[in-house]
Write a protein that binds this DNA or RNA. Structure first.
Lengths: 213, 213, 213, 213
DNA sequence: CATGAATGAGCTTTCATTCAT
DNA sequence: CATGAATGAAAGCTCATTCAT
């Protein structure tokens, strides 16, 4: 009998979560069946319970994983020195397919959080982290003169978060905003919301039919 | 000889939908059970099927009803002549309780739309209407000099929609934004995004000390 | 308030039964829904119970009605003096459409009788009558020299009954035997089973090329 | 690492079908409940669906199984060289209990076939096989001089089938024909329908109260 | 570690029947 | 007489979870 290797165990957990992610995006947390996740992860239903306590536990892990990814993405962004460009890129559209699945999951997680205390807790913990990170980044931008110094960084971190979610919802409500159109919108938002007064004014109308991707 | 009264029938349907709304907000579309809805509507499980073809049909009707309400709300808003103030009020927080239930439903509907073709169709049909309405309203505001004339009204209608959804998501992710804090955020967004250059600049710093949790 | 007119009442019962017959033939006793029967009879579900105690009661009446028709048909046949020809006509195919519905009902009733005591009783009561009638008719035929005098009329009445049912089953199992092919088979059966020795021998080979499907 | 054993799976399927057969005979296809079948097969209601897609699928399998048995029975019969005796034995009464259940199922299947396309297809496929088999057997009998050479074997195969069904219906309609009386009838039918002219004539009346079983 | 057979509670839906009007 | 809204028991089926192997 082999002793369990914690590394292998964690690796398998991540594999299963990846499979679960596909199922959850397709069918939602409630709609996805454990059997489907097992099939997608190429394991037997019984074996799943060596890695997770149950479906609920997978959902929690999924919320955790997803929020961790958001934190990572913002953290990565925060390393760039051109604040506005970095934010635009971070909120803009990216690899198609992958992106839409992420969008679906993000909205599903918020919906779940509105009635599932455990998921809500996970979400809030990360939201706090993200906002602190964003606030710091915005203050850096203000110091660099890239962000309007009048803004309250704390409040604006919430705004960035809200806009992030809003764009995802919009891309579901109106498929036109899954592609280049979305980037247009992002740039407008970023510039008008964050840029110092001097930099603005012109781009709003000029962006009509501007660059994308 | 009693003939079916379509009025009574429609009334009962609305009653059931109201009950279903409470259940869906609490447990989600999948999590809510038909039996619960029946209990909430004070009808027997079998009788529900005199008014709806099935659970799916209730979900569709719920999406329809909710989007219709959104349209109505924006339409009402569009009758006011002070564009910025009207938008601020429209996106701001209101009666607690009612509001949060609506928020939950709104997010649930978007999540459902991302994998349910019927709901997606309903949503898109109304989104088109709302955007046309908003675009018209923004153009009116531009004519009145209340909205930055540089803005592309069409694109900005999408932005207002995205922000609406984003605020709802935020209020789930961070409960601090369910109350007055939300109004603060809304005003900032409205002013920076929509107001002509001359009107802006001052209010942003006033929000000091707005961090959540 | 009008007193119930027993004549009208009985008429309506028959109308309902006719409608029920169509439903039962299409969907079977269990498969047919009371609501369908009501719709077919152009009455409301509640009103049905003025004429029948319940579905079971309709099934009983249907069995009764159907067996009564069989009795009537054989009685009518028994008035004809050419025994063999009368029997051939009686067992042969007739108006399409009508006939097949009757066939379906007949088999359904037998199937039901095998597990429903009430229906079994109804069926047996009529079977006794039919067999007595047939036995008498066969004896008449024997007296007239049209039926083999060696036959035991009592036993052969059962045989005629069995063959009647068998042909109906066959017409379901092999649709080829719903039309003229069936008549061919009937004539063969009648002649070989019932005719005196002298009359037989010739017609059998004449049917060459009668395979089905 | 256990792999699914198709043999065990098929065995369990047959066990379940046997249990279903008892339920269907007692209550009919529609009347029998899935829960009853599960109880009779000593499995849980959910587990049934590892072996069958649903109730409909069990009914189809039952029709298939029953018709396969009929084919097997006739095939076995066709191996015997005394054609008339073999047919008499084949159509006659046998082990009580078992037999009646088979009779009920046979009639139920025909009734179902009259309105269920899938069952009808199954039935017809086997009917074709049985008729071919019977026709061949009758021709063999004709060669051996045991069957009237004037008969058209093809048509008479249908006749044998019809008589088989007719006897089953009769045994339901008149319980007297479940036992020895039935054998009497069978012998008469066989002799008169199939035997060459020379062999016949006497037995018809002589059978009054004759031997059985 | 891994399997998949087995469980059973609980889901949505159906439908014979009742009853206020 | 007649209606159809209302009932509620029970049906078929699903699926998260357990367990013998």
């Amino acid at each position: 009998m082999r002793k369990i290797d914690p590394r292998r165990h964690e690796l398998k957990r991540q594999e299963i979560l990846a499979a679960a992610g596909r199922c959850f995006a397709r069918d939602g947390f409630r709609g996805a069946r454990v059997a489907d996740i097992c099939a997608a992860a190429h394991i037997s239903p019984g074996h799943l319970y060596h890695y997770f306590d149950g479906k609920e536990s997978i959902i929690d892990a999924m919320a955790e994983r997803n929020m961790a990814r958001v934190v990572r993405r913002f953290a990565q962004m925060a390393r760039q020195t051109n604040t506005l460009r970095a934010l635009s890129a971070g909120l803009g559209a990216s690899r198609r397919g992958q992106r839409h699945r992420r969008t679906q999951l993000a909205v599903e997680i918020v919906a779940e959080a509105s009635r599932n205390a455990a998921v809500a807790r996970i979400l809030r913990a990360h939201v706090r982290g993200v906002r602190r990170l964003l606030a710091g980044y915005l203050r850096d931008g203000q110091r660099r003169g890239q962000i309007d110094p009048q803004l309250d960084a704390d409040l604006f971190s919430a705004m960035v978060l809200a806009v992030t979610q809003g764009l995802q919802c919009l891309s579901i409500m109106d498929p036109a905003f899954r592609g280049p159109q979305r980037n247009l919108l992002v740039q407008l938002l970023i510039v008008r919301l964050l840029a110092p007064q001097a930099q603005r004014g012109t781009p709003a109308r000029a962006t009509k039919g501007s660059s994308s991707t």
